[in-house]
Nucleic acid binder design. Sequence first.
DNA 1: CGTGATGTTGAAAATCATTTTCGATTATAG
DNA 2: CTATAATCGAAAATGATTTTCAACATCACG
Lengths: 140, 140
Amino acid sequence: MSAKKWLKELRAQGYRLTDARRAVVETVAQSPRALTPSEVYDLARERYPTLGLVTVYRTLEKLEELHLAQRVHQDDGCNAYLAHAEGHQHLLICEKCKKAVYFEGDDLDDFFTEVGKKHNFAVKDHWLQLFGTCEDCKYG
Amino acid sequence: MSAKKWLKELRAQGYRLTDARRAVVETVAQSPRALTPSEVYDLARERYPTLGLVTVYRTLEKLEELHLAQRVHQDDGCNAYLAHAEGHQHLLICEKCKKAVYFEGDDLDDFFTEVGKKHNFAVKDHWLQLFGTCEDCKYG
DNA sequence: CGTGATGTTGAAAATCATTTTCGATTATAG
DNA sequence: CTATAATCGAAAATGATTTTCAACATCACG
Ligand SMILES: [Mn+2]
Ligand SMILES: [Mn+2]
Ligand SMILES: [Zn+2]
Ligand SMILES: [Zn+2]
């Protein structure tokens, strides 16, 4: 339930708080999985029926700029947005229900640097994502 | 220079060998970096000027199905295609010139399984990509 | 080597996601 | 409360990708 924090941050950046924004922010902030603009639109309209799709795009763009949400890349698309993690974390995603969980504690930088050396690359960043099946989707 | 192998494989799957396909296949097979459909179009037209963009899309689709090429995900887009690696490998990509190199030898499955256990996930797959600067782009 | 059945082609039209434009509306500083 | 500038949603514009279709080219078979 970080919606309040997100709204406070938007306000702190000089943005106005409107019902349309609140609907989008609350929808994304409390979703257990990454949502596409169109999914956000459908869900947020349950809270605020006159919301326009354009405002969804505009709000997601701002949330991304402020690092409150991030875009998630998956085999079936790369335009779904998820609440951003604190600090350096990676994603574990259920292939069935798409539930996303962050994890930390990977200590692989030495390995990555070593791989870089072999190919004469200076490694600066990495992406790591795990895919599997969550508890709820274990069967069926 | 795996273009010949790719063409042989296309033929083996019952597809006909045309000049348009050859131009696309050769372009992607010998590129040191992932190419978007539009980039493939521009490059392949140097070999076969009447090539249509539609054929580029159709050929890339087939190369992906046959696992000869794969789509590469990057911050600036996820529709660039690269020659697929043999077996299980991961990518190391130069952020400046986009040169892509495969590496193997990561032995992280135990760690991934452990992460999964903590969150009650059965981990089945993972994505790992490294980003940095290649030798040629070290300065400037 | 023909040759015909069938796969393939590129242009144009259709579709789909995203962005831009714009006049009306609304949040908020003062 | 009021004035002003930000924000809104509808509609139009854009850009990427897919579909349609009639002409064409490949290649199995004779
Ligand atoms: Mn990490
Ligand atoms: Mn691996
Ligand atoms: Zn699940
Ligand atoms: Zn480089």
